[in-house]
């Protein structure tokens, strides 16, 4: 890390440019969030980043009851990416609200909860449990997890189901609702439109692409769950393409991500139509990457005389 970069992390420099963005009613001090499932509940990354500097922390997907997740092995590295089949392991909504959320709120972190249900009713119940008074800033709706049999991606690949689940959670909570879309569909714009019609305040995209790897010695799939979700730089072009397509078709903002490893990557996502970005796999590689990207975005804006980052949203999109 160069000393020059360190200079740009100084508060005075950040104050000269406006990094704030509006994500469907949720005001973020900067567009950089960390993706659900890649940042735990923030604790694990405290040695590396000042988590209060992040636009938001999207916490690990939370289910109604504790969930022990999928059999091992759960992860495997592939070319410029990784497969995971964690299977939504989490301690359940009670522990999230009572233990993990207070920890983040005490540190001044803007928290986006991520919820996953097995049924429409479970999504409703979870939505009703996470409202403004809980201190959570918004709800990301996991309707795209490729690693759970019931629910998960099943909710995110059928436009009618997407409409219903978004609508149900919207009615249950007073917070902005941000469904996370699955890329494992033939036309993502149809899903995006269904989510918008259901009342979504913003869209989060993309979740992982379903994939697999084979162990040729054992002649069997590497992952315990056979299939997993592919993430990392390998999926960036797919994510950008989908965000670009969706941005042209819908009116609500996009929280974009998929393989972001640098401020340049983040800018590509913003210019493709993302109002905010999420960093996922990059956290595993460089645990300080999120704050580094914030600093480098400011760096870019100063160098290019861009007063507001929001001026760049969708800059590359031909309507």
């Amino acid at each position: 890390m160069s000393t020059r970069r360190k200079n740009f992390s100084e508060q005075s420099v950040l104050e000269t440019v406006d990094l704030s963005v509006n994500l469907g009613g949720l005001c973020l001090k900067n567009p950089v969030t960390v993706a659900s499932g890649t940042f735990g509940y923030g604790r694990e990354y405290e040695p590396f980043v000042d988590i209060s500097r992040l636009g938001a922390v999207i916490v690990k997907g939370t289910t109604l009851k504790p969930n022990s997740g999928n059999p091992a092995p759960r992860i495997y590295e592939t070319a410029s990416g990784m497969l995971n089949s964690i299977g939504l392991e989490n301690p359940g909504i009670e522990d999230f609200l009572n233990i993990h959320l207070p920890y983040l709120l005490e540190r001044g972190v803007s928290v986006i909860a991520n919820i996953a249900g097995n049924t429409l009713e479970e999504y409703e119940t979870l939505g009703a449990m996470i409202r403004k008074q809980s201190g959570v800033a918004a709800i990301e709706l996991n309707i795209s997890c490729p690693n759970v049999k019931k629910g998960g991606m099943h909710f995110g690949t059928d436009p009618d189901m997407v409409f219903q689940v978004v609508n149900a959670v919207k009615k249950a909570t007073d917070l902005p609702v941000i469904p996370k879309l699955s890329p494992n569909v033939s036309d993502i714009t149809i899903i995006a439109q269904a989510a918008q019609a259901g009342g979504a305040n913003a869209l989060s995209m993309i979740n992982t692409l379903m994939g697999m790897a084979i162990d040729i010695e054992k002649r069997k799939p590497v992952l315990g769950n056979i299939f997993g979700g592919l993430s990392g730089p390998a999926i960036k072009p797919v994510a950008l393409r989908m965000i670009y397509q969706v941005h042209r078709e819908i009116d609500i903002p996009i929280l974009g991500g998929g393989g972001i490893m640098s401020a340049t990557d983040a800018l590509e996502f913003i210019m493709a139509g993302s109002s905010a970005v999420s960093i996922g796999t990059g956290n595993f590689v460089q645990p300080g990457i999120s704050v580094q990207v914030i600093n480098e975005l400011a760096d870019y804006m100063i160098a290019n005389n861009i007063p507001r980052i929001s001026d760049l949203i969708g800059a590359a999109v031909r309507k």
């Binding site: 890649t38 940042f39 694990e44 690990k60 759960r74 992860i75 964690i86 956290n283 595993f284 645990p287």
Partner: peptide, 9 residues
């Protein structure tokens, strides 16, 4: 992946 207990991999 993460090495710090976050990814549960």
């Amino acid at each position: 992946a993460c090495g710090v207990g976050a990814c549960l991999g």
